[in-house]
Amino acid sequence: MGDVIVITSGKGGVGKTTTSANLGTGFALLGKKVALIDADIGLRNLDVVMGLENRIVYDLVDVVEGNCRLKQAMIRDKRYESLYLLPAAQTRDKNAVNPDQMEKLCKELVQDFDFVIIDCPAGIEQGFKNAIAGADQAIIVTTPEVSAVRDADRIIGLLESEGKHNPKLIINRIRPHMVKKGDMMDIDDIIEILAIDLLGIIPEDDYIVVSTNRGEPAVANPVSGASTAYKNIVRRLLGENVPLMKIEANDGFFTRLKKVFNF
């Protein structure tokens, strides 16, 4: 029996889909059998981020409505043997599925997979309720911005009222030089406000854009900062004790000069 993890945030554009793709791929790189579910019906994107958009035949709604068997709809990622994607329907809306159906689907998948990762849509309506219904564990993605942190707080409250306790937090897109200047909330600030456990931090990384352009999750790249951060999170989810990565400002010329002269 595996784990069902939902990746959620409230606010859009904070990196839920990127996080889902990278955690899924990260688990697969370690040999775990993973099912990625795109729960964003009507606005699917996990397929393009994963580079699997040309291989979709059936989708989540087809499975739920019985138009195909679950195995027919699961797309196997040829690059990572043990990684599968269940894409969202693009021509339907969130009401095409209900929480009971999602719960049933997750129960079925978890028999076969080590991890089922659900990419939740933004918002707190039907799509959110569907996405969290079958999850044992929730990961909240936020960025160090007022709007994202506020929405994360709301999501924590909603998860609590749905009986999903102890969600874990990922702080995404941290810009070290801004944190250093005091122009971006740091990890401690955000943890103090939200009062939940920190799962990991991801530095802002241009390579994420490149990897999304190519449809190859960044975690497979050995040198990117975000890749290391995602690998660390994967290992933590597997029970390893991995220290938080040091996020340091890429010091400019003057800072280096200051260091040399020691003032």
């Binding site: 911005e145 007022v146 506020r150 200047k181 005091g182 122009d183 971006m184 909330m185 600030d189 406000i193």
Partner: peptide, 14 residues
């Protein structure tokens, strides 16, 4: 010196 807009952010969030 620190313009520290993050302190403004924290206070508004609070």
């Amino acid at each position: 010196s620190c313009t520290c807009s993050k302190d403004v952010a924290k206070e508004r969030l609070r």
